[in-house]
Simulated assay, not measured.
Amino acid sequence: MSLIRFNDVSKRFALKGRTQDALSGVSLGIARGEVFGIIGPSGSGKSTLVRLINRLETPTRGTVEVNGVDIGKLKAAQLSAVRHKLGMIFQAFGLLSSKTARQNVLFALKLAQKSLTDADHQRVDDLLARVGLSDHADKYPSQLSGGQKQRVAIARALANAPDILLCDEPTSALDPEATQGVLDLLAELNRDLGLTVVIVTHEMDVVRQICDCVAVLEEGRLAEVGTVAQVLFDPVSDAARALGKHLLPHAPAISGAADTRLRLTYFGEVVTGDALSAATQGADVRFSILAGQVSELKSVPYGHLIVDITGADRALVIERLQTRGVRVEALI
């Protein structure tokens, strides 16, 4: 059973005397313990979708279930209890400027309970240490960098030991170095604490680095959903192809026939070996590498090559590649 489930969810807003559909008929499930990406261009409905999980927004139609419970049916006290187990971080950090980093994290505990104990104060210090900010605990937001502010926001979101961490464009306001640090931290929290992480982004590279599965939204509709590898390497929608195209190498424009070109994709241990050389050894073929890269999908290495192979043993080489776990596609 999915930890989070959207059942035929639509959301309509009234704007200046007219209505606009932000979401239309979205159904998908998010498994416990996974990092799930929600991606799409601006205005695709991705932030609205994640805000439905903690009922900051309510569906116009359909239901949203968290751990099997329709949160739309919860009364105020029940909803408050659920929200305490749903940490959330935002693009703009949402820190209180008049409070230090430690006080910002403590504030989340104050909202959940009437009084604070010594154990609560120790928990806050432990959380700040976990996000690498022990030396900055008494600094105010104005004294912190963007990446440090987001780390405070993450510590605050963890204050009540949530089961789910909702992240709405958490790296969009950060420079590349701070972005990498925040993504590494989120991956660590998912791995070490078993947190289910839902991350909204418009960047496929963020999805590539951290997510297990991803949903692609386009104009409020679910264009496709699947593992990151499926959506990146086997997109079925134009929206997914557009989002992922800059992450994959493209064959250069060459005059003449191109029906001898192949796209090779391989994962894990195959990347560390020389699959192409092994497959072509002793074979009557001529090959050239037109484009390629080696990268990672959530720490799993993958290779992606575009090659041109001709010769009498071309079919044999393709068979050898496939036997070694390389995915081979004709590229025309």
Results as ranks from 00 to 15, higher is better:
L128M: 08
A178E: 04
G132I: 12
G132T: 12
G146S: 06
T179E: 15
L185N: 09
G132M: 12
S145E: 06
A161H: 14
C167N: 12
A173H: 07
L128F: 02
V152T: 09
A129L: 02
R130P: 03
Q143F: 03
K139M: 12
A187F: 06
Q180D: 12
L166M: 08
A153P: 02
K139H: 14
A157P: 04
G147N: 14
A173N: 10
V152E: 02
R151G: 01
A137L: 05
R151P: 02
D138Y: 08
L189S: 07
A187E: 15
L186N: 11
D168N: 04
I154M: 07
N190F: 00
R151I: 04
R156Y: 10
I154S: 01
K149C: 12
V182S: 04
C167Q: 11
A161V: 09
A155P: 04
L133P: 03
D138S: 10
P162A: 08
R156D: 13
Q180A: 14
E188Q: 15
L166E: 14
A129P: 02
P141Q: 02
I164Q: 09
L128H: 04
S134V: 06
R130A: 07
Q143R: 14
R156W: 06
A153V: 09
T171R: 01
Y140L: 13
N190L: 06
T171M: 01
Q180F: 05
A157I: 05
L144N: 07
R151C: 06
Q143C: 02
L166R: 00
S145K: 11
Y140D: 10
Q148K: 09
L165E: 08
T179Q: 10
A161E: 14
V182Q: 04
S145G: 15
Q150G: 00
C167G: 10
A155F: 13
A137Y: 00
A137D: 10
G146K: 01
S142Q: 12
D126V: 06
E169Y: 04
Q150C: 01
A178P: 05
P162L: 04
D126F: 03
C167A: 13
E188V: 08
P141W: 01
E177V: 13
A173G: 11
G146T: 00
A159W: 07
A129Y: 00
V182D: 11
L186F: 08
L185K: 09
G132Y: 07
C167L: 04
D184K: 14
D163P: 01
E177S: 14
L133Q: 04
R130I: 03
L185I: 07
